[in-house]
């Protein structure tokens, strides 16, 4: 659950005598994350500029082949004049689109839920929150598998719907875009609920009361008063759903079949599948990371602007 790390400011306390120890205290963190996270990512960027050896493996030769494969096509056999390669861009576009739709689903269901919980009496609030977050702590793989089991052609959902006569034949739910979106929605819903909850909990209902005294209806209050104030929470929730969703692998892989190829599947295919092109896989990962950084920059600017209100 990201973004909730407390306080980027000065922290409590005036040092309490720990000043001198800051170096050694932070050293393990810097070492671990520096060596095993930052360094590998840099290496990955470098790797994307290597050449792929025939039939797998790499040669230590600088080349833009991986990026070329992504953006440019030279015909089926490489002997036609270069033109834009739309396939991978389409995959990215499709992933972004899927992520957007999943985020919207999460928003539509998540906002009312967060509002409802935040407006319960303080004693029960914790319980509701707890109920919402438990499923998140269950292994994502198991949750995705459970969803697949539920919606497949001869699964419980279809059986139930058929037995009460709502439908005649099974709904073709697996191996569709809808299944993938459902999977994404299912994976990341709590990420949307929690930040919105935090924002709504801090909302001062005096504003609503003042507006009501001026004869505003509750929906107008929601739209004109509440939403602008709660906006940072909503934006945080959207970001927290959107970012994992574009790089998701399990939902498209288990629920999508061949039709819904997303970025995660594309990358995985390069490393584990039958295509075996590591530099290309690295290049796609770099492009994905750039996308994510862009999204984060937009978020940062949005919250900076929101803070000025």
């Amino acid at each position: 659950m990201a973004g909730g790390a407390p306080d980027a400011g000065g922290g409590t306390g005036s040092g309490s005598g720990y000043r001198g120890l800051i170096g050694p205290l932070l050293l393990p963190t810097w070492l671990m994350i520096g060596i095993f996270m930052v360094l590998p990512v840099c290496l990955m960027v470098a790797y994307s500029f290597l050449t792929k050896e025939f039939r797998g493996g790499v040669e230590w030769e600088f080349s833009l082949a991986a990026y070329d494969q992504f953006f440019v096509t030279r015909g089926l056999f490489g002997d036609e004049p270069p033109s834009i390669e739309w396939t991978y861009i389409t995959i990215f576009w499709r992933s972004v689109w899927q992520a957007v739709i999943a985020t919207l689903f999460c928003l539509i269901v998540g906002f009312p839920t967060a509002w409802f919980i935040a407006t319960r009496p303080a004693a029960v609030r914790g319980v509701w929150l707890f109920l919402i977050t438990i499923p998140y702590w269950v292994n994502l793989l198991i949750r995705t598998v459970s969803l697949k089991f539920l919606i497949r052609d001869n699964g419980p959902l279809n059986e139930a719907l058929m037995s009460i006569g709502l439908i005649d034949g099974p709904l073709p739910l697996v191996n569709t875009n809808l299944a993938v979106q459902l999977g994404l929605f299912y994976s990341y819903l709590p990420f949307m609920v929690l930040p919105i909850y935090a924002a709504v909990e801090r909302y001062n209902f005096a504003y609503s009361e003042a507006a009501a005294d001026l004869y505003a209806s509750r929906w107008v209050i929601l739209r004109e008063i509440v939403l602008p104030i709660v906006r940072p929470g909503i934006v945080a929730g959207c970001i927290l759903v959107f970012i994992p969703a574009i790089g998701a692998f399990l939902a498209p892989d288990l629920l999508g079949g061949a039709k819904t190829f997303m970025i995660g599947s594309l990358i995985e295919e390069q490393f584990k599948g039958s295509l075996g092109n590591w530099p290309f896989g690295a290049a796609v990962s770099v492009i994905l990371m750039t996308l994510v950084l862009l999204a984060l920059l937009i978020y940062a600017r949005q919250s900076a602007r929101g803070g000025q209100r």
């Binding site: 797998g56 493996g57 490393f271 599948g273 039958s274 295509l275 075996g276 590591w278």
Partner: peptide
């Protein structure tokens, strides 16, 4: 699950 995947893996 395929000859090619095995080859890629060994070469990598």
């Amino acid at each position: 699950d395929s000859n090619e995947a095995m080859l890629a893996s060994l070469k990598a």
